[in-house]
């Protein structure tokens, strides 16, 4: 029983992190049909900004991370993606792929390829014990933070003018422009929100790993893609659900797979992704592309 609760906590906490990642990717995809590989590099930038500001008081350190990553995300849109407005999804995908590669290489130039140690405030890795169950405070922080953020996002999308505009743009970008929604502004807000989620993810990931590397963002972004696909690209709630599911599945595979197969759990996970894509071949992934025809 204790073990079960322990696993459940792990599963929900990992799922929350994955949901956060998926939201950051789905936000952009829903609005501009871009699967942004460089989202991972936003996380990487966040990690290095925590490293650079490591000697500052921790609230400043976290604030630096948030500001730098959101600024980076906005700059990414302005400098790299705006020239490609209206390009097809594959062109956008390759562009973001190239951008991701460029930023990783740039990080190598600046910081070298070896991991840099980053320390975060100690309250992230204190151990909390309730009865016979003990878990790290990071688990709790992750879950609470993600719940708050998802709730905040939902309110934002329902209650604010920009939020409603974003939902309209996600449903039909062209028509949204026809009723006066400013395309560039909505996209910029989406990038800011995506950057926000990347910054929070960077803090959580660094708190867990304790290091920053140029390739830090690669596996989170893959997870985000997978979660977004499972949830049906373009739907934020779907993406969050997909992330949660993926986190839970990862923990389940970890627990259930025999030792000899355990190293392959990621392989199983991605095989599952292919199955999902197949089970819903016209899945929400391609629906949009289909209706793009003139």
């Amino acid at each position: 029983m204790t073990a079960l609760i322990q696993h459940a906590i792990d599963a929900v906490s990992l799922g929350s992190l994955y949901a956060l990642l998926a939201l950051g990717v789905a936000m952009i995809f829903g609005i501009m049909n871009l699967l942004n590989f460089a989202y991972g590099e936003l996380i990487m930038i966040g990690a290095y900004s925590l490293y650079v500001s490591r000697d500052l008081p921790w609230p400043v350190q976290l604030a630096v991370c948030l500001i730098v990553v959101i600024a980076a995300s906005l700059a990414m849109d302005r400098l790299a993606f705006r020239p490609f407005r209206g390009a097809s999804a594959p062109v956008l995908l390759v562009t973001s792929f190239a951008l991701s590669f460029a930023l990783q290489s740039l990080a190598t130039v600046i910081f070298g390829s070896r991991a840099k140690g980053v320390s975060l405030p100690s309250f992230f890795d204190e151990s909390i014990t309730i009865g016979s169950v003990s878990f790290s405070s990071l688990n709790l922080v992750t879950v609470v933070l993600v719940i708050v953020l998802v709730g905040g996002l939902a309110t934002f999308l329902r209650q604010t003018t920009v939020g409603v505009q974003m939902r309209a743009a996600a449903e039909n970008f062209t028509t949204a422009r026809l009723v006066g929604v400013k395309a560039d502004r909505v996209i910029a807000v989406a990038f800011a929100l995506s950057g926000f989620s990347a910054a929070v993810a960077a803090i959580l990931i660094v708190a867990q790993r304790g290091t920053a590397t140029p390739t830090l963002g690669v596996s989170p972004v893959l997870i985000a893609f997978v979660a977004t696909i499972i949830g049906g690209l373009g739907s934020l709630y779907g993406a969050a659900f997909g992330g949660m599911l993926l986190g839970v599945l990862t923990v389940v595979l970890q627990v259930v797979l025999p030792d000899s197969l355990a190293p392959y759990r990621e392989a199983f996970l991605y095989a599952g992704v292919i199955v999902v894509l197949l089970a819903r071949p016209q899945g929400l992934v391609v629906v949009k592309a289909l209706f793009e025809r003139v």
Partner: peptide, 28 residues
């Protein structure tokens, strides 16, 4: 761009209506 034209007094009711189905009528 269309969003600028709307502001200058030119509105289009597109083919197939193109209402935002997931938004409420009021939000539309």
């Amino acid at each position: 761009p269309p969003e600028r034209l709307v502001r200058s007094g030119l509105a289009l009711v597109p083919e197939g209506r193109q209402i935002f189905a997931t938004l409420t009528v009021g939000e539309n």
